[in-house]
Design a protein around this nucleic acid. Structure first.
Lengths: 118, 118
DNA sequence: ATCGTAGTACGAGGTCTATCGTACGAGGCG
DNA sequence: CGCCTCGTACGATAGACCTCGTACTACGAT
């Protein structure tokens, strides 16, 4: 009641020890999902799914967010009808120190090189 | 003639500027290929395909090495009937500084955590 | 020249993936 | 309540991917 948290029910997330590097890399190997993660990292805040303006349908968007969540890259929480998404920075840094930053830096670098102005 | 290099013909490799982060991540998201890359990094030398004792057939092995080469992760050179494989450390470090080391460290960490003794 | 070894090519099978469309559920707001 | 928005679920489709087996090439050694 005095809880500021979620209204809806919970979503299944992998425990840190269940997160597999291969799954994380696979999740990030899709351009759409890498783009989502970059935006999430840039804003440094929880963002709703609808905040993203992806060139795919809603169904496909749901699919990509689910892949990211099930691989352990993001955390999703219902907040009313919206679903807030946040990077699992702490968990990933604990498991693979420095990896996330390197990946994000690599993505930034490539985006700059290719002229994909953020 | 005074060339110490290859006997056979050349294999197509992507130029550094053609290497895409997504392709690299996809290449490394397969357990068999990640294993190959880890061995390659550990030995710090060029290894022949047959040096690897993978639990798949020769055809499949060829396939995985091709994926790694085409994504820009390894360099392959014919040397007689053997094909020598080497990590493209310099090119990758130039494109994505620190990424390869982070990835290898992450893989090592996970292998240790899961008891996959090297 | 003959054989053996290293690796390729090609095709097939089965699985997984990305995408879509439509129909549905849950929550906020008039 | 009725409606709109956010997101899900399910089914379908087309393409990619991993795996294999068999037939083949290239090189080196006997």
């Amino acid at each position: 009641m005095t809880d500021t948290a979620t209204t809806g029910r919970a979503l299944p997330h992998p425990e840190p020890e269940e997160i597999r590097l291969e799954s994380v890399l696979h999740a990030l190997s899709d351009p759409m999902r890498l783009r989502i993660v970059r935006e999430l990292a840039a804003d440094e805040a929880e963002l709703s799914c609808s905040h993203f303006d992806l060139p795919v349908t809603k169904s496909t968007t749901t699919h990509h967010f689910r892949v990211l969540r099930q691989s352990g890259v993001i955390r999703q929480v219902y907040q009313g009808t919206a679903k807030m998404n946040g990077l699992r920075r702490d968990d990933l840094d604990g498991l693979f120190p420095g990896l996330l930053d390197s990946l994000l830096a690599a993505a930034d670098r490539q985006a700059g090189r290719l002229g994909d102005r953020s």
